[in-house]
Design a protein around this nucleic acid. Structure first.
Lengths: 211, 211
DNA sequence: GTACTAATGTGACAAAAGTCATAGACCAGT
DNA sequence: ACTGGTCTATGACTTTTGTCACATTAGTAC
């Protein structure tokens, strides 16, 4: 990973910080589908996404999972910061959706840079802030909305994030992420198709228009 | 508010910080039942709880509410930090449960102290961290658990926080906070009573034993 | 093509939660 | 003790979601 590549994804970072990152961090690559972290793991470092796309989701004891949010280049996993500080295990899973490159920064530097670099300080706070908001939004949806609305929102989010109208997921995968069952999702999708909101294909959904 | 009172609730703060707080912050008092913040409000300051008890909950467009967590003396509202930084409105309501005193710290100092006082820095990060975890826990409950389990957890939490086995809430109030309906809560409580877990009185619930 | 597998469609049913209607219980003020 | 208001209890019913069983379809491998 070169200085210029880092600088490109994190334009707000001052030059010295970028150099510090370059010399003190490790690049890790994950192929699509690979897990970046899993429940019960300890963190000794925090991760910045340089390239690719990462899906972060929650998992309970029975193996039910639950989609929380995507991480894109230029973002960091607040969870790895949260847990890193306390040396605690997480209840979080993260999976690479596309081939992904991350910068892995040891905990000790993360802390040191907070006072050393203003841009790092703002970056960390902004990461907490934005993830906090995502979680609040997630809570809103599961607390207040019915499955059909949640499904629509889920699809909308995917279109935004993937930058494509075609979502390459099976009904089963969607059901898992919304912690529902395939039949329910199939039925709702069928309804949406009849309303002209989506077009269903095998293993993918083409979004026509959502409110 | 005297230096010693602040120091008592926030023992980790160094002396200079406490003095800085004393001379640059404002004390605000709320009587039980009063709102500390409401949806749509802007923040120009962050609040530390010195005395009392504050309930933080989420509200949607239709006025449904949803309990998130309690704030106790020695804690701060992460939301007010989150929003303060970005000068954004919150979707959060906070209400004093007991008579409450808070220290209101202007945004500018909050930022300045981050680099000036190590203990402040840790306090802010720890606040983010712990609230983040509370939110994750909340998500777990609404995503993975049925109403009966959520109710039990809710009661347990209240016993812990209030430090009393008697919870002074009506079924309707509980229903609101769990975003359910009174009848449902009444029925579940009745079942719990038959199982010997609680004893029901008018306007209050006495907890006998929960797992 | 045939055979196999994964994905999807669908009807029937069960369970959980929400809604409606109504009645009783409790408390406060007079 | 009467009255009005709030809180609680309960049965009947609806809606939503989850589950089960099985049929159909689409893609893949041979």
């Amino acid at each position: 990973m070169s200085v210029s590549e880092i600088q490109q994804q994190f334009p707000a970072f001052e030059k010295e910080l970028v150099q510090d990152i370059e010399s003190n961090s490790e690049i890790r690559s994950f192929t699509a589908g690979e897990q970046l972290m899993r429940t019960g793991q300890y963190f000794k470092s925090t991760m910045l996404i340089v390239e690719g796309l990462v899906k972060v989701y929650r998992e309970d004891d029975q193996g039910n999972e639950f989609f929380m949010y995507y991480l894109q280049p230029g973002q960091a996993c607040a969870l790895s910061m949260v847990c890193a500080v306390k040396q605690e295990t997480s209840q979080i899973m993260a999976k690479a959706v596309k081939d992904t490159e991350v910068i892995s920064i040891p905990l000790s530097y993360m802390d040191e840079w907070m006072s050393k670099y203003k841009s790092w300080y703002h970056f960390v706070l902004e990461t907490y802030r934005s993830r906090f908001e995502e979680l609040l939004e997630t809570i809103d949806h599961i607390a207040f909305q019915a499955m059909d609305e949640r499904l629509e929102f889920y699809l909308k989010k995917h279109v935004q994030t993937l930058g494509s109208k075609t979502i390459p997921l099976s009904h089963q995968e969607i059901a898992d992420e919304l912690n529902s069952s395939r039949e329910v999702i199939s039925r709702l999708l069928k309804k949406m198709e009849q309303m002209g909101k989506v077009k269903l294909q095998r293993n993918s959904i083409e979004v026509i228009k959502l409110n």
